[in-house]
Nucleic acid binder design. Sequence first.
DNA 1: ATGGTCGAGAGTCGA
Length: 259
Amino acid sequence: MKIATFNINGIKARFEALQDWLREAEPDVALLQEIKSVDEGFPREIFEEMGYRVETHGQKSFNGVAILSRLPLEDVTRGLPGDETDEQARWIEATVIGQRALRVACLYLPNGNPAPGPKYDYKLAWMERMRAHAEALLDSEEPVILAGDYNIIPQDEDAAKPEAWREDALALPESRAAFRRILNLGYTEAFRTRVPGPGHYSFWDYQAGAWQRNNGIRIDHLLLSPQAADLLRDVGIDKDIRAREKPSDHVPVWIELDA
DNA sequence: ATGGTCGAGAGTCGA
């Protein structure tokens, strides 16, 4: 089973590029962030005609997540548990029925800038809620995959210019510590367990020729529970699509599982 | 140090 995460930065601007990539990469499950659309505005028919089930958790203008799956989905839930007053659409979760059942979450973790400030406070509180939920998910019998735009640069080697991110919410020590607390529950970050060293990125800013200068950061991650890590066969980043017409500022990151 | 670019959709904010 191939599972990919992709921050598309707006479905209205990206549905053609998204279709092209789906045809080429053929993921069984595509986890999308920043759809920037309400549920009714998501062009679900386009993807249903390609054989995908479509589950969205949208919001007007900002945020919004979605799951496209060629495999059956069960028990779809929307929203990160732990705060009923949180109205931001950043989490959708479903059980994917392949050769075996996998619990898959698609997440868009808050950016948190500027830090310090209320947005950074929200990021850290959200990560603590995620930690609690990630811990609860480990109690299930199923392999668990937590994938999406984490807005976290885990280590300096995950940025082309780490010094430029020193004061940024994506790289502050408190941000990295909150990310490690989730990993230390027993999750494995899929890409890093297979590919060591610097130079691997999933985001290049639109500004200042970041792509042309390869000034990137690696902030899109797939975290695997121990049962899911046992199934890991391959990982990759579809870097080349960043060079196309009207690209997202992120590119897809994917895993292949024996499942 | 500054300004640089996108997307959504409304006359600006978030990234």
